[in-house]
């Protein structure tokens, strides 16, 4: 067991964890953050995407001990004083989700993408989200949501 100290959604936690514990399971099982999802176990689908120190990472292929001392943001930490993050609003308004299971990962990946490229082209959006799979939307309205969040004109 190893002791880790992790800040998640602005709150600092300390726990003894097994070195093999995956970060996604630490978030879900130990901290009870149900908004971080697991979808493939092989870092292909991106449902588990969170931000670590502002960078998007797939928490199914990060060990909890690797997050020791780091600052984690999940979808549950985005809203401030009841106000949604603009990316959350855009996904809702553009119907960028259906079943919603990929959505938290998609939103976190979008935040990371827009940080790198504030005004991405459609191609850049599609390439930027290639690590996040959605089986419901055909990506059409996800792309639209990202454009909207970026303040780009939406066709």
């Amino acid at each position: 067991m190893r002791r880790i100290k992790v800040t998640v959604d602005g709150k600092t936690h300390e726990h003894e964890v097994e070195p093999r514990l995956l970060l996604i399971h630490y978030l879900r099982e130990v901290l009870g953050i149900g908004g971080a999802h697991s979808g493939c176990d092989t870092s292909n689908c991106g449902a588990c995407t969170i931000l670590m120190n502002g960078e998007s990472v797939k928490s199914c292929t990060v060990l909890a001990v690797q997050a020791d001392g780091e600052d984690i943001m999940t979808v549950q930490g985005l809203a401030k004083n009841g106000e949604w993050h603009p990316v959350q609003t855009a996904f809702h308004e553009a119907h960028g989700l259906q079943c919603g299971y990929c959505t938290p990962g998609m939103i976190m990946a979008t935040i990371s993408l827009l940080k790198e490229k504030p005004n991405p082209s459609e191609e850049e959006i599609r390439e930027g989200l290639e690590g996040n799979l959605c089986r419901c939307t055909g990506y059409e309205n996800i792309v639209k949501a990202v454009k909207q969040a970026a303040g780009s004109p939406v066709s």
Binding site: G34, G35, V75, A79, F91, H92, L97, G100, T103
Partner: peptide, 10 residues
């Protein structure tokens, strides 16, 4: 349906 889904509360 969306509010719970975009905030991780589903």
């Amino acid at each position: 349906e969306d509010p719970a889904l975009v905030t991780g509360k589903a």
